[in-house]
């Protein structure tokens, strides 16, 4: 299980109705492929975030499938429409079953 997983997001605090805003997200996570061996030759256990989603007021903005080729501390930048005031919800799915999430309010 990944430890010390910490999501961070950058969302503007406010926007005008209908604006397109840029969102950036980072989550501290090893993204260990399960293919590598440690110095004593033992396989390092797989630990991968395999999906990331961003929704705004329950409508989807982006839905990403991550392969182990995504770097340590996965980073995403994308653009979202803001039709009204509300809340962005960000969710990361670890393939050990853990789900990490965070949210950010924005006012129009």
């Amino acid at each position: 299980m990944a430890s010390g997983v910490k999501p961070r997001v950058k969302v503007p605090k406010s926007a005008s109705a209908g604006d397109v805003i840029t969102i950036k997200t980072l989550i501290s996570h090893p993204m260990e492929s399960g293919q590598r061996k440690d110095s004593s030759g033992n396989t390092i256990q797989r630990s991968i975030i395999w999906r990331f989603t961003c929704d705004f007021n329950d409508q989807n903005v982006i839905d990403v499938v991550l392969a182990p080729a995504i770097s340590t501390n996965p980073y995403f930048e994308f653009e979202a429409q803001v039709p009204e005031s509300g809340e962005f919800k960000f969710t990361w799915y670890d393939d050990d079953g853990d789900v990490y999430d965070t949210s950010k309010k924005i006012s129009v």
């Binding site: 397109v20 805003i21 840029t22 293919q35 929704d55 705004f56 409508q59 989807n60 903005v61 982006i62 839905d63 990403v64 499938v65 991550l66 392969a67 182990p68 080729a69 995504i70 770097s71 996965p74 980073y75 995403f76 930048e77 994308f78 653009e79 979202a80 429409q81 039709p83």
Partner: peptide
């Protein structure tokens, strides 16, 4: 890469552009 797949981006109804940026291992 030994496994070529890196990521799939699906854009929802509130995507502002069909644009995404990430960081990958090569």
């Amino acid at each position: 890469n030994p496994t070529p797949g890196v990521a799939t981006f699906r854009f929802g109804p509130l995507s502002g552009a069909q644009f995404a940026s990430t960081r990958i291992r090569l």
